[in-house]
Simulated scan of single mutants.
Amino acid sequence: MLRIPGHGPRRSDDIVIGPLDLAARVDEALAVQAVAFGLSADEVAVRRQIVQRHMTYPGARALGATTARGELVGFVYGMPNDRTHWWSTVVEPYLRVRGHEDWLDDSFVITELHVHPHHQNRGVGRALITTLTDAAAEPRSILSAIDTDSPARALYRSLGYADLARQVLFPSAPKPYAVMGAHLPLRRKGGTAAGERAGDA
């Protein structure tokens, strides 16, 4: 467990990072994602099925960020990457053109990372992703994010993720994505880690 102090002297707004039974709390998690990512009710319904399927995959793990009252305010989940999974089949051609296809092997993929807007800018997202990847057996990590200069992309860069492919188009997604990769462990604030080498990719 990892505790993130609240804004004031009271401990009631502390946030605890710990294991999450995502299949059991999928509706709470998607409620956070809907606010953070701007999802419609129809999109939430589709993602609910996807999340539940993902959590049956070998090695899939999730962490949650909860308040002292037990309210879920953030979550992350991922799994060892598999080339047969849908996400890999979409990004593979883009990575191959850039000479980065090998990143689909021996990588832990971050599938989703979301923090409720009311709890952002407190290090919650950073704590979620670093804690999750610290337990990965794989030597590196990959993910996709909307290809724009956003707080999420800035966070990933600060952790050591570098662009492997840009302008990646997913079916039905209105905006292009970037695929990013980092060596593990991820970079910490004020220091470096193996992720520093991701810039060589």
Rank of each mutant, 00 (worst) to 15 (best):
Tyr77Phe: 14
Val44Thr: 11
Leu104Asp: 02
Gly125Val: 05
Val97Phe: 06
Gly123Ala: 04
Phe108Lys: 03
Phe75Asp: 07
Val51Cys: 04
Val91Tyr: 00
Ala137Met: 07
Val26Trp: 08
Pro117Met: 03
Ser141Ile: 02
Glu43His: 04
Arg122Ala: 06
Arg98Gly: 07
Thr84Ala: 14
Glu43Ala: 15
Phe75Gly: 11
Ser107Gly: 01
Asp21Gln: 10
Leu39Val: 00
Thr66Ile: 13
Phe108Val: 08
Ala29Pro: 00
Leu72Ala: 05
Gly99Asn: 02
Gly38Ile: 01
Trp86Met: 12
Val124Gln: 03
Ala36Met: 04
Val91Thr: 00
Val32Ser: 05
Ala68Leu: 11
Thr56Trp: 09
Arg140Leu: 04
Pro117Gly: 06
Arg69Lys: 13
Tyr77Cys: 06
Ile50Asn: 12
Ala62Tyr: 11
Ala62Cys: 08
Arg126Pro: 00
Leu22Cys: 07
Asp106His: 09
Thr130Cys: 04
Ser107Asp: 02
Val73Tyr: 09
Ala65Glu: 12
Asp13Thr: 10
Glu92Val: 00
Ala60Val: 11
Arg96Phe: 01
Glu138Asn: 03
Arg61Leu: 13
Val124Asn: 05
Ile129Val: 15
Leu128Trp: 05
His7Ile: 10
Ala29Arg: 04
Ala29Gly: 13
His7Gln: 15
Pro19Asn: 07
Glu112Ser: 07
Asp105Gly: 07
Pro93His: 04
Val32Gly: 03
Trp87Thr: 13
Gly64Lys: 09
Leu22Asp: 03
Leu128His: 02
Val124Gly: 06
Leu132Phe: 03
Met55Cys: 10
Val26Glu: 12
Trp103Phe: 02
Leu143Glu: 05
His119Asp: 03
Val97Met: 07
Arg10His: 13
Ile15Cys: 01
Gly78Trp: 05
Phe108Tyr: 13
Asn121His: 15
Arg122Met: 11
Arg11Ile: 11
Glu43Arg: 14
Leu113Thr: 01
Val124Cys: 01
Pro80Asn: 07
Ala45Met: 07
Ser12Leu: 13
Leu30Ile: 08
Leu30Lys: 07
Gly123His: 03
Gly99Glu: 01
Arg10Gly: 15
Gly70Glu: 11
Ile17His: 07
Leu63Val: 12
Ala127Glu: 01
Ile50Cys: 12
Leu132His: 03
Asp102Ser: 15
Thr67Tyr: 07
Ala41Ser: 15
Ala62Trp: 06
Ala135Ile: 03
Ser88Asp: 02
Val91Lys: 01
Ala65Phe: 11
His116Met: 01
Leu63Tyr: 04
Thr56Asn: 11
Glu138Lys: 04
Val26Cys: 13
Asp27Phe: 01
Ile15His: 02
Arg53Leu: 12
His7Leu: 14
Arg122Thr: 09
Tyr94Cys: 00
Val91Phe: 04
Arg11Lys: 14
Gln52Tyr: 08
Ser12Pro: 03
Thr111Glu: 15
Ala68Met: 11
Met55His: 08
Arg47Ile: 10
Gly74Leu: 10
Ala34Pro: 09
Phe37Met: 15
Ala45Leu: 10
Ile50Phe: 14
Leu63Trp: 03
Val35Arg: 12
Asp27Gly: 00
Gly78Asp: 08
